[in-house]
């Protein structure tokens, strides 16, 4: 039993999910920093709205970050542009062990330089980047892939130890996302608006999330407001139980992905939704991804079949 567990642990797992998360996280951060490029000084610069004095006086978890080294504008500009370069390298999968570490250090620094603009999604991203530093995120979709040794008998002790660390790290990412849903669901159960089925109305009515014409229509459909409010709690609380079931996990994932797509559009929380959906990619194993690839291939074949038949049909018509 112990021997089987040791062998199971010594082979890197969830490699496709880990690589997909890396690509998604890099894209999310690149989009986020490029979107805010023109107002970077306002958000993180020494003369920004979250003043350097505020940054120094907040405890920052007692841990130094890169912004503690200098308050100069030049230093800030170097950090900002360097981070974008590092993110591109991480996205391309170049030396992901090193770039993964750098992405975490830089993101940690920017996160605490101005926590006022960071939401729950960015908090999750910060935690997951920390865990992912110990995982092999460069086995797939990488220019310099970190190829795992498949044959366990040929592995050195160090390679086995690194594999164990990888498995623990990806499990940490998975457990973290499960905890997010469960905690959010349990706290919602305690809220009076969630209990009376009107919470979604209040969220849609906040002016920062308001989508003219769409949100008004939704909150005027009583059945939709109640269904969305209770459905959110149900999906979140049941998520841990569903996700460990080999078949129900697909329903759980479809449920939360649909919920996040809804949140992205109706509440304009694109980055939050994107981070949540990207994090969920770790919840499918390599076998699941291979199955998805096969389905996609079949779908493509089907599309080609229909395209060809259409062509023949036209050809006959022309004759």
């Amino acid at each position: 039993m112990i021997q089987r567990f040791i062998e199971w642990s010594s082979k890197e797992r969830l490699l496709i999910g880990a690589s997909l998360i890396r690509v998604q996280f890099a894209l999310i951060l690149l989009t986020f920093f490029i979107l805010n490029y023109g107002q970077r000084d306002l958000l993180w610069g020494p003369d920004g709205i979250w003043s350097y004095g505020n940054f120094l006086s907040s405890h920052n978890n007692g841990i130094l970050n890169l912004f503690h080294f200098s308050a100069s504008n030049l230093f800030f500009e170097i950090l900002f542009h360097l981070f974008i370069v590092i993110l591109v390298l991480y996205l391309l999968g170049i030396r992901t062990r090193l770039t993964g570490l750098l992405v975490f250090i830089f993101f940690w620094s920017f996160y605490y330089r101005n926590p006022a603009i960071m939401n729950g999604g960015m908090n999750l991203l910060r935690l997951e980047l920390l865990y992912l530093m110990f995982a092999n995120t460069g086995a797939y979709l990488a220019l310099t892939p970190e190829k795992p040794v498949r044959d366990i008998m040929k592995k050195s002790l160090l390679e086995k130890m690194i594999a164990v660390l990888h498995n623990v790290a990806v499990m940490a990412v998975a457990l973290q996302i499960i905890l997010v849903y469960f905690t959010a669901g349990i706290y919602k159960v305690m809220g009076s608006y969630w209990q009376d089925g009107t919470a979604v109305y209040y969220a849609l009515r906040l002016h920062e999330f308001y989508w003219p014409g769409v949100n008004d229509w939704i909150w005027n459909q009583t059945w939709l407001v109640v269904l969305a409010s209770y459905g959110t709690i149900l999906i979140q609380v049941m998520f841990p139980a569903f996700i460990v079931h080999p078949k129900l996990k697909y329903f759980a994932l479809a449920g939360v992905v649909s919920m996040h797509i809804g949140i992205a559009f109706t509440m304009s929380l694109f980055f939050f939704s994107w981070i949540m959906i990207a994090s969920e990619m770790i919840l499918l194993n390599d076998e699941d991804y291979r199955k998805i690839k096969q389905w996609l291939r079949k779908l493509k074949e089907l599309a080609i079949y229909f395209r060809d038949h259409k062509l023949v049909f036209r050809y006959e018509e022309e004759k």
């Binding site: 999750l124 997010v180 905690t183 959010a184 706290y187 009076s192 608006y193 969630w194 919470a199």
Partner: peptide, 21 residues
């Protein structure tokens, strides 16, 4: 709170019911 500070209330227990401006 050193490295792992987190809060997943996410519109809980209730979403805010005030628009600030």
């Amino acid at each position: 709170e050193s490295l792992f500070s987190q809060n997943w209330k996410l519109f809980a227990p209730n979403p805010t019911s005030q628009n600030a401006s």
